[in-house]
Computed example of a mutant assay.
Amino acid sequence: MVDRPNKPSAIAPAASAPQPTVDIADDNSSITATLPSGENVTVLLHGATVTSWKSGPGAEKKENLWVSEKAVLDGSKPVRGGIPLVFPIFGAPPANHATSKLPQHGFARNLRWEYLGKSTSESTTSGDAGTGPTDNSVKLDFGLYSANLTDEQQDQWPYDFGLVYSVTLSRDTLQTMLNVRNEGQLGFDFQMLLHTYFRIGDIGSTAITGLSGVTYTDKVLNATEHAQAENAVRIAGETDRVYKRIPQSTTSIVEGDKPRFDVVRDNLPDTVVWNPFKEKAAAMADFAPDGDYVHMVCVEAGYVSDWVRLEPGDTWEGGQRLRSLL
């Protein structure tokens, strides 16, 4: 065998790219996922409520969601802020309906969900495969089942179901999707809503676009029906509107003349726009500071103007993709 004087050096194994991390709170109350680039999301197991979503350029990430300083996070009541999940009824239940015994907004936001685990993905965004910068994402799954209901709740809504709620964080987006399975022998009707509280600079310079021509129910004006004439919805007083069967999939929040958020609905036809404004905010015990109504607006994707009918063995999925436009 010939001895080569200049042997090639061994090829060092490629360093593995940083991966998203997932941390469980010491008291087992919440899950936080963080990308290598610093974006993060926190989900409270009570209600599977997203309580924080931070993103943006630079090392200091900006909070995208508003949560009241007096929000109750111990599981004794729903969270005022973040993204509470409404199921299987939106608002007060109608009389003589299968949901009529349930409390307002149902039970999903009031119960502790099970953390089912995480999955991660990585995609090359530029350059040759394996050489360009990559985008990471991490998906957190949470479960709630009919067996988790109390005896009283099972009496109020006696159906066998399984819910899987997936929260997926990527660099500038947060996706929240709900999968509903009918695991029983009876069909059932339900509604769902993602009650998202966005943090904004000033409600006076904020507009919601993408709703022009859409019919809405104005709950402040005795649930009367109206058509949205202007492209931009501006808030100058208490606002509680249900925009129904919206043809386009994207609704946007604009601050001044700059887009701030896009809300892209997936299999959800409706959007609720809500701000309590001065007097109602002051009257709400868990809304603080009182004047913070100027720093929040709810743009809530949902299926609430009608019912989803789910027969035995069937599944349904719907949700939203939020994009921060910093």
Rank of each mutant, 00 (worst) to 15 (best):
G82V: 00
V79N: 06
G47C: 12
D189Y: 13
F188L: 05
V72C: 10
M192A: 10
V167N: 07
S119D: 15
D135M: 12
L85N: 12
Q175M: 15
G162I: 03
L221A: 15
K219Q: 12
E230K: 09
E152S: 04
V264Y: 06
P78S: 12
P289M: 06
D135E: 14
G56C: 05
S52E: 12
E300I: 02
A108V: 12
H105F: 02
V220A: 14
A285F: 14
F261K: 04
V304G: 00
S324E: 02
A71L: 10
V233L: 14
H195A: 06
V273M: 04
D27H: 04
A12W: 05
G130T: 11
L193Y: 11
L163V: 03
Q156H: 02
R234Y: 05
G237V: 06
L174C: 03
L221C: 13
R245W: 15
L116C: 14
T206G: 02
V297Y: 06
G106Y: 00
F90M: 06
A95L: 14
D26K: 14
L144V: 05
L73D: 05
D135Q: 13
I203P: 04
S126I: 07
G127S: 07
D262C: 02
S121F: 11
V264T: 15
S121P: 06
H226Q: 13
K54A: 15
L178Y: 11
L325N: 13
P5W: 04
T120V: 13
K61D: 09
V263K: 00
S37Q: 13
N110R: 13
